[in-house]
Computed example of a mutant assay.
Amino acid sequence: MTTAQQDSLLDRFDHERPLIGMVHLPALPGAPGFGGDRDALDERARTDATRLESGGIDAIMLENFGDAPFYPETVPPHVVADMTAIASTVADAVDVPLGINVLRNDAEAALSIAAAVDADFIRTNVHVGTAATDQGVLEGRAHETVRLRERIAPDVGILADVHVKHATPVGEASIEQAALETVERGKADGVIVSGSGTGSETALEDVERVAAELSAHDLQAPVFVGSGVTADTVGDCVAAGADGAIAGTALKEDGETTNPVSVDHVEQVVQAAREHSPSDR
């Protein structure tokens, strides 16, 4: 059993129900829409990260959001190199835990980057099972991801989606069964329940079902809400059984996912989250 599995993922955060803020990177070199300036990418990531921290966020997730159309499972080395450089910049700029997500589903790259910059956790979109996506059919590689984590980054937590957004699960497994298998058989340290797409509200019934299933099997893996989290909805997410939340769109200027982070918007969502999680660890 790894260190990440021995301790709860929640132990990495200062608050009882942590709020993770997204740094959505613009297009990286090699992707359509890249602006031609690596320094600008660095500066944008640093600025967004420091604004998130200034607004009181508990952790940061770095993601190559602007790289559409995404490589399905394995990104090329230049993407790993650029994300590692940017992640290093972010890690040096903030003191809150850092997570890495490499779209669409490259957990090996995410773990490699996390190991290089001493990040705290990764996100993997399809950890177990199979999903039909706009990148084609993606299959979970928990057997590879967990073993690689053991070899190169045993302290890095694995936060895995169940019935991930922008995808349709293949097969008839319910969301609670998918969550159970993600934790029990896939050895994920926490799960994410989301809506249908970026910024889409997450069905509270799904959160309730997943939280109840994991609790019924005495599993300590936390449940995070992964989309549609705002100052108005974060309380309902907690009431439905969420242990934490990931916020992105609601923290941006004018509520646009691709815009820079707004400190005022971060403070509003953080304040709402704190009302439902008042205690420090």
Rank of each mutant, 00 (worst) to 15 (best):
I60S: 01
A59K: 00
A115Q: 05
P260M: 04
G186K: 06
G195W: 03
L138S: 00
E43H: 13
I158Q: 00
D7P: 02
E144F: 00
D14Q: 14
G56N: 01
P222V: 06
A245I: 04
R123Q: 14
M61W: 06
D67V: 07
A272E: 04
A131F: 04
I100M: 08
D7V: 10
P222G: 10
E16I: 10
S262Q: 03
D134K: 15
V193F: 04
E53H: 12
S174V: 05
Y71R: 11
A85Q: 13
T2N: 10
E73M: 09
T47Y: 03
E53N: 12
A153D: 01
R209E: 14
D11H: 14
T130M: 13
D264H: 12
R123W: 05
R147E: 15
T74Y: 09
N101E: 11
L28F: 11
A179P: 08
S215H: 13
D120K: 02
G199T: 07
R281S: 14
G199N: 08
L214E: 11
A31Q: 14
A27H: 09
G35W: 11
A212R: 07
G36S: 09
I60K: 01
D106E: 12
V261I: 15
L10C: 09
V80A: 10
G66Y: 01
G244T: 07
P69M: 12
S262K: 02
K252C: 00
K165L: 06
R281A: 12
S112F: 02
R38K: 14
M61L: 15
V238G: 01
H78L: 08
E184A: 13
D95K: 11
V126Q: 02
L28D: 09
T198F: 08
D67G: 06
H127T: 04
G244A: 11
A221G: 01
D7Y: 14
S279A: 15
V79T: 15
V223E: 08
T249V: 09
K187P: 00
A245V: 14
A115W: 02
E253R: 15
E73H: 06
